[in-house]
């Protein structure tokens, strides 16, 4: 069995895995990272979205061996230094979740969206999250939450970067 080395939420794991093992099952069944849920078997729902080397991937369509050598961030590792990520906070404040099952994937996909486009329009947010399904919210508050997080992150980036503050 191939040996892989993957850093997940700041901790490096070395394991011998079956080549067919999905990353999401590696996270859940091997590492106990059960904050990442599974919602489908056809790569449609996005509930299992994680960040792999900073980019969002659906961990049900990545093999664990493909993650060898990479750094994975799950919803459990998104908060830094005990501080919730602005996207987590804004999902809470805007009531952008109900059952919460899609929420880990939705939050991680949204953070990746803002990395590409720090100030998206509502339509760009909706298009950017097209690969993540939510059955509870009707998406309206998710759009608001991403907008709010974008504003907050732009503001705090401006506050810490004097060059941007002048722009």
């Amino acid at each position: 069995m191939p040996r892989i080395s993957v850093k997940v939420d700041g901790v490096t794991y070395d394991d011998d895995v079956e080549p067919r093992l999905l990353l999401v099952h590696y996270l859940r069944d091997w590492l106990g990272k059960v904050g990442t849920p599974i919602g489908c078997d056809t790569t449609n729902c996005g509930a299992c979205t994680v960040l792999m080397d900073g980019s969002s991937v659906k961990s049900c369509s990545v093999l664990a061996v493909q993650a060898d050598g990479s750094e994975v961030t799950t919803i459990e590792g998104l908060a830094a230094d005990g501080q919730m990520h602005p996207m987590q906070k804004s999902f809470h404040e805007e009531h952008a979740l109900q059952c919460g099952y899609c929420t880990p994937g939705m939050i991680l996909a949204a953070t990746d969206l803002l990395r590409d486009n720090p100030n998206p329009s509502d339509d760009e947010i909706r298009d950017g999250l097209e690969g993540n399904l939510c059955r509870c919210t009707g998406y309206q508050n998710i759009v608001r939450a991403v907008r709010r997080a974008a504003a907050e992150m732009t503001e705090s980036a401006a506050a810490t970067d004097p060059k941007e503050a002048r722009v």
Partner: peptide, 21 residues
């Protein structure tokens, strides 16, 4: 009121049935 349920759901500290060992 923003919901008190959210804390665990937005941090992945959840207990879905499939997660139970």
């Amino acid at each position: 009121r923003a919901r008190k349920e959210d804390a665990r759901l937005i941090t992945g500290q959840t207990r879905w049935t499939d997660s139970i060992q």
